[in-house]
């Protein structure tokens, strides 16, 4: 018999919401972090998120008979990464043409990515696809609420590992330094004999692949279904989150937890009887984004960690 938790339900719901809801933010923000370190902004990740969600769900549904319900969703995750990479190639090539603005290309890619996802996703709204498994780390507790809250997705662990790994990659490996060099000073990098085009292309492709995996977590883990409004702007919020995190992968991880948790604030408070200002609580993630942008943006100073060539024109 499930007992009511009362007020303890609020922190528990936020903790559970953090574990469940932060995965797309985490992958998209890590992907965007990688991309922006190379000096390009990829707003198109919102479209990649939708394409990833759709292709993962579709592949998981279509391959469940051949692969079984354990491997089919993982195959979906793989295809989502590949689909993201394909969109990344378009973005990477387009945004590096002379006199092309990467923000404008990004907006076009949002429309393109979501268009692709909606077009091919029509037949997959109705069927139920096998979902990704989760580690059940709450079985020590006899409270069903805790058991449900402590279900941890392997994708979350993957993201949590990826963040420090990426930090190490940026600071301690030759490849990481190359990306940062291209992002800070393309001229200097070119003088070193590095192909700026190739480095940026690879960074954008890898970043988009990560965002595709984020999309897969939406449709195959939580909320665990494909429909056209599944992302509700999470891709764009994750891009803003990278600025908040000062282009630091570890801080991207913390920021993703914050955003994931804030989504569950409104429903959790209403469930214990705080009904006032529910619009405000429901809007928590968006208000948080807005506050962050206001607090961190200033025309006079640059945020530490900003890649030097970010948002600059392409130099031929």
């Amino acid at each position: 018999m499930t007992q009511a938790l009362g007020w303890w339900g609020v922190p528990l719901a936020i903790a559970a919401g953090t574990l469940r809801g932060s995965i797309p933010f985490l992958f998209v923000s890590l992907g965007e972090c990688l991309t922006e370190k190379s000096g390009k902004i990829n707003l198109g990740l919102e479209g990649v998120l939708l394409t990833g969600a759709m292709s993962a769900y579709a592949v998981s549904y279509l391959t469940q008979e051949q692969l079984g319900s354990f491997f089919a969703p993982w195959c979906g995750v793989l295809v989502a990464a590949l689909a993201g990479m394909a969109l990344g190639i378009i973005q990477g090539w387009l945004c590096q043409q002379p006199r092309v603005n990467d923000v404008a290309v990004g907006i076009a890619m949002i429309i393109f990515g979501s268009g692709i996802a909606f077009f091919f996703g029509k037949p997959f709204i109705q069927p139920v696809a096998p979902r990704l498994i989760a580690f059940e780390w709450g079985n020590w507790s006899n409270l069903p609420q805790v058991q449900a809250a402590l279900k941890v997705s392997p994708l979350f662990l993957l993201g949590a590992l990826l963040a420090p790994l990426m930090q190490w990659f940026f600071t301690a490996t030759r490849w990481g330094l190359l990306i940062r060099a291209v992002g800070d000073s393309p001229q200097a990098a070119r003088a070193m004999g590095i192909s700026v085009f190739k480095v940026r292309m690879l960074s954008i492709m890898a970043g988009s692949a990560l965002a595709g995996i984020g999309g897969a977590s939406l449709s195959l883990y939580y909320p665990g279904s494909w429909n056209e409004l599944i992302s509700s702007g999470q891709g764009l919020m994750a891009v803003a989150l990278v600025i908040f995190a000062h282009w630091n992968p570890i801080q991207c991880f913390y920021a993703s937890l914050l955003f994931g948790g804030s989504q569950s604030l409104g429903p959790a408070l209403q469930s214990v009887g705080i009904d006032s200002y529910y619009y405000l609580f429901n809007a928590a993630p968006y208000i948080l984004t807005l506050l962050i942008m206001i607090l961190t943006c200033s025309p006079k100073t640059t945020i530490p960690g900003t890649p030097g060539a970010l948002g600059k024109d392409n130099t031929p």
Binding site: T2, Q3, G21, N227, P267
Partner: peptide, 28 residues
């Protein structure tokens, strides 16, 4: 009956969170 309003007609994550917090409060 506990009523939770999500704020819009289609917000998948909020709807899932609403169900989860209701179950945590013993709603069946």
């Amino acid at each position: 009956t506990r009523l939770i309003l999500t704020g819009d007609w289609s917000l998948p994550v909020k709807e899932a969170e609403a169900v989860n917090s209701m179950v945590d409060q013993g709603i069946d």
